[in-house]
Simulated scan of single mutants.
Amino acid sequence: MTVATRNAPRTERTSPLSGFLRRREIPVAAALIVLVLVTYAANPLFLSQQGVKDLMLNATIMIILAVGQAMVIFTRNVDLSVGSILGLVAFLTGTLFADAPGIPIPVVFLAGLALGALLGAINGLLVTVAHVPALVITLGTLYVYRGINNAWAGGTQYFAGDRPDEFGALAVDTVLGFPIITLLAIAVVVIVGIYLAGARSGRDLYAIGSDPEASRVFGIPVARRVMTAFVVNGLLAGLAGVLYAARFNSVGATTGTGMELDVVAAAVVGGVAIFGGSGSVAGAAIGAVLLTTITSALTALRVDKFWQQAVVGILIIAAILVDRIASVRTARKLRLTEARDV
């Protein structure tokens, strides 16, 4: 046997099934299934026709927000202003329907998407141009956007009766058993997932999150890609704001308050590494479904709201610890492999 043969790098072959089971999304999906089955066993009404529809509706807004947040986290950033963006767009939606009767629903959607994208672009510019950590920037814009909404809305609220019946029907009517707005959320997950997997600019987001400096060396336009992630995140928050106005009975100055932490939690619990570079939008969507289902399940089991929040906190800590342990194990395997091949 030659030296070259002895020193040839060894490759481990894994079956497709083994690779599938190692995916980050699998434990989250398994936890979701167990949660649903246990809750159903304790309360059979949990999976009634209306109960299943409510579960899908409750998860819809969070799924869209989690997908956008995941794109930002992939780049080793975070956006804490999404709840405020949603609130502004939701109130804009109510204002358009109240002040411009007969306005076409597609125009309202376009206005909401445009405002969300604009607010996301402001976040992206501040992060990429000022070179200030996104956590600090978006914490500031969270309060700025919320302040603008408070000043604009004041004590005004818009209710379900202020919007066209066709608009409200988006959260009522179903296709093949799925609410229309839930199908929109699924479409968002599929489209963004295809973009991240198939487009070079999408794959660049992972590279940036893994090593920003190396990405610059390899010619990736880091600032432009990060800017794109923030704009898309804002656009999706705008879409969520419009759908929020269709889903819920009222919108006002406090709409969306506190949602930002739930959104980050959904992405992290869904397997998106908080330090960037890995995860998937499908996982973020499953994480969103898990968190909203936990709330519904604990409510169905008449568990105190405090414990609902505690469970979410435990899930976040567990997800971060699992990600950290996986990173350490991967680094250890890499070192052992390099030592063996020397």
Rank of each mutant, 00 (worst) to 15 (best):
V136L: 12
I137W: 06
I137R: 06
T138Q: 03
T138G: 03
T138M: 00
L139M: 09
L139C: 11
L139N: 04
L139V: 15
G140N: 08
T141H: 05
L142M: 11
L142V: 00
L142R: 05
V144W: 05
V144Y: 00
V144Q: 01
R146Y: 04
G147D: 04
G147R: 02
I148V: 04
A151D: 08
W152R: 00
W152N: 01
A153I: 03
G154I: 06
G155S: 11
G155P: 00
G155A: 11
T156F: 06
T156P: 04
Y158L: 05
F159V: 14
A160G: 12
A160Y: 09
G161P: 04
D162A: 11
R163Y: 09
D165M: 14
D165Q: 13
E166S: 15
F167H: 02
F167T: 00
F167L: 03
F167K: 09
A169Q: 12
A169E: 09
A169G: 08
L170I: 03
A171F: 03
T174Q: 14
T174N: 13
V175H: 13
V175G: 12
G177Q: 07
G177C: 08
F178N: 13
F178R: 12
I180K: 00
I181L: 04
I181Q: 02
T182E: 02
L183H: 03
L183N: 08
L183V: 11
L183M: 15
L184P: 10
L184G: 12
L184I: 15
L184F: 14
A185W: 02
A185Y: 10
A185R: 01
A185I: 10
I186A: 13
V188Y: 08
V188W: 05
V189T: 03
V189I: 09
V190R: 06
I191N: 11
I191V: 15
V192Q: 03
V192Y: 06
G193V: 00
Y195E: 10
Y195N: 11
Y195D: 11
L196A: 05
L196N: 05
A197W: 13
A197P: 05
A197S: 15
G198V: 09
A199R: 14
R200V: 14
S201T: 15
S201K: 15
R203D: 13
R203H: 10
R203G: 10
D204K: 10
D204W: 15
D204C: 10
L205P: 08
L205F: 12
L205H: 06
L205R: 09
Y206E: 00
A207P: 02
A207W: 02
I208M: 02
G209I: 07
G209A: 01
S210P: 03
S210D: 09
S210V: 02
P212T: 04
E213Q: 13
E213V: 13
E213F: 14
A214N: 07
